[in-house]
Design a protein around this nucleic acid. Structure first.
Lengths: 115, 115
DNA sequence: TCGATATATAAACATATATATATACGTTTA
DNA sequence: TAAACGTATATATATATGTTTATATATCGA
């Protein structure tokens, strides 16, 4: 049994920690969860699980200002959580891939057990 | 494409509005994702997917100070993302429920598609 | 072209947050 | 009991972040 203060032990622990996932993955993962971790954005994503929506409609539905919605959508777009489709002067947003809805649903399951 | 003034479109908005969750759910959901949205905490949760660990070992594994790890664990504990088991002067932490690992895995799937 | 509409961007402000440092608390052991 | 050990907490501070306000860009209709 290695002493918990020995260099060998610390080396083993660090090696275990670095197994399988690169710092880039953790960094992007943290950014992604952080993007999900805002009251306005989580609502925006939730209404988008029901289908494609225009910026202005999201703003009305959630009682948010248009610049706020646009700002948040840009952040979500940069992280590939939503995608935009332009038609005329409108921009239609939708969830980018299936993982996003799964993340929301899994999160909702967790929090609904807390209430 | 539906016109934003058509009866059909208004019906869609109404339907989506009726699917809104309570503010409490969104609030807790945002808090939960925010807790996941930090480089240190996402690493802490990741190493905990390998099994129960002591505070000090997590600190060594991730090259973090002990107070930082303890601080993050308290936040994760408050949101029921991890649970603690005390044995003597040690505190063993583990993931609280199955949703947490699923959230991490779903998030990892998403970000690994970005790289 | 002019005005109206829809969205995007920028600067400023107030608030929130992660970390470092120091210290306190509780348990085991000499 | 005292010292050692593992963990928790408190405070300070620098940085990050969400919202507001104002303005810019782009498209459509008159």
């Amino acid at each position: 049994m290695l002493s918990s203060t020995s260099k060998e032990y610390q080396g083993v622990l660090k090696k275990i920690a670095s197994l399988r996932k690169s710092p880039q993955v953790f960094s992007l993962l943290a950014e992604t969860f952080q993007a999900l971790g805002d009251y306005s954005r989580v609502q925006i994503l939730w209404v988008l699980t029901k289908g494609e929506l225009m910026v202005g409609d999201i703003a009305v539905m959630l009682s948010l200002s248009q610049p706020v919605v646009s700002h948040h959508l840009r952040m979500l777009r940069n992280l590939k959580l939503v995608r935009a489709r332009r038609q005329g002067r409108s921009a239609y947003y939708s969830l980018d891939d299936i993982h996003i809805e799964r993340l929301l649903n899994e999160g909702i399951k967790h929090v609904e057990e807390l209430i």
